[in-house]
Design a protein around this nucleic acid. Sequence first.
DNA 1: TTTAGGG
DNA 2: CCCTAAA
Length: 634
Amino acid sequence: MVFQKRVGCAPNGFHIPAMPRVPRSAKGKRSSRKKVEGNQMSAFDLLASLAGKLLSEREGFWTPSNEQLDNESSIKGGVFDQGSCDESTVAPPFVSHGNLNLCFKQHLKSMEPITATCAPNDGSVGEFADKSLDSASPMESCVYRVDDRTVMSLHCKGQIEGQTDSNRKKSVIVSSESSVDLPPYGDCPRAQSCSFPSTKDGEALHGDDQENSSVCTHPCSVHSRALKPHCLEAHRRRKLKKSNYRKCDPASYYNSGEVSNNDVEMKPVFHSQKLFYTRQRSKRSSFKQKKLFEHCSISPSCETSPDEVIVDSLAKDGIKLEADNLLAALNGANNISCTRRGSNPLYDSEDHPVKLCIKSFKVPELFIEIPANATVGSLKRTVMEAVMAVLGDGLCVGILLQGKKVRDDSKTLRQAGISYEDKMDGLGFTLEPSPAGTPPSILNLKEPAFVLTDPMPLNKFQASDATVLPPPLPPANCIEIDHENSAHSSIDPPDNLDSDSKMLVPWAAANSAGAALSLVPLGKSRRSEIAQQRRIRRPFSVSEVEALVQAVEKLGTGRWRDVKIRAFGDSKHRTYVDLKDKWKTLVHTARISPQQRRGEPVPQELLDRVLSAHAYWSHHQAKLPDPAEPRLLT
DNA sequence: TTTAGGG
DNA sequence: CCCTAAA
């Protein structure tokens, strides 16, 4: 007997008492060194990264005025981009008081507004929701209709004024088929998504809605997330299609995703222990869909079901994490020397500290299928593995301001507009995949629909269960990145979110208890042709070239692994293949005229050595790993 | 997993 | 940088 249970809707989520080291994902776990290369990011790292982003960078050339956006659209954009039930939460233990809730959403994106907040940290979302119905409340509400559902959106209208009333900026969108006193439909034409509050307060307020809201998720929308074809490399698509995907009855996806939001629903769909890792079935508003599909040839109407409604919610028990606490935790744990108050040189004399409250991060929800005779312990492990597969394979924090990504890490908060109170309700953080070994880059999760399956070779699996399983996923993070952006962050172009959005497909981590996982997209063929991540281009610096040349001189051109160890042993982002390729280009560069060379000029001396080494090793086989290593005569 | 090469 | 056949 096999049952399938949707984990994600567990009201209280999964509270992980400690943040273990994350199992490495599919690639390179062979040696310890490889593990080091693994793009692992602990929750602490995450916070550190976040803190660094928020509090440590101040230089920039961008002026906030460029980012003046519609104040309302931001939240809604964020909401639309979220669109899912609230899911499990992970509470890292290192936050002294207050938890950073990582809510398992269907994708790694957080729309939770980071609010400027001043102690005392009051007010749950529910309270705000309550108050929002009061005209005196700092919250605004608006109502709109999604299909047959009336939806109320509560969001902040107030500005942060002074130090006492600044933490009133919350946004919650409340699904409402209930008795909530709703303003007339149409008050807020832009708001078209619904979500249900998962905070306890929200539950208390709209408890009846939760179940109803659950209905909002619809399996059919599993594939409704728009993947912009223009974002896909056709070439890659073809390859992926050819090599990694197989035809599969779409209905099987739906079956697999047909588990309702009722936690208790069991479905004997699969016969082996699997983890379903699917994106929340949701529907975006027509408004958002328009944006989503703006560059997509797929019609939204055919991608969504009428009764799908975006279900978005705030973290269950989303405990605020104040910057103070965060910094204190960081300082205490990792000697990060940043203080927040007065004397902090990070702040200009007249610069007010920016207090932020991260309500939650959202990561994809999980579907788990496990034999009924499995032990509770194995279930726990399975969930943990799924969780860590999502969280562990390298996350970085992205910042959304007014719905736009803030990419320039060098900007100050003020320059980025984060210190502007009138924008605080448009500030959001996202958990994003961090390309291996690369600085955090902003990546939007657009197609977080996966299935975790048995790790058996895909070909075997296909042969044995081809009618059930969705197409397998390419064996790596599938992140489409902006090729225009190098590793260096840059300013977000002032266009909409989707235009520069990225896609990601996390790759499951390895197992620990015989339940190895692999990830398979749950999407449909068209858009399950997910672009595989292309690593961010990282031009070799002169010093790197120097190290490479030196190592090749010593080791020869046939031992790239050794060269890598020798010259880039601690570098995560330079693989031996990279080095081999770089050497290839170096040889080429050395042979062409300086006028033809591009990029950062390599000193001629190095190029000469490249040619010399290349010539030498062309005639000397570098076979012997160690003893009398041939020396290059120079 | 590494190497070697083409793309 | 990617992709992959071969080793």
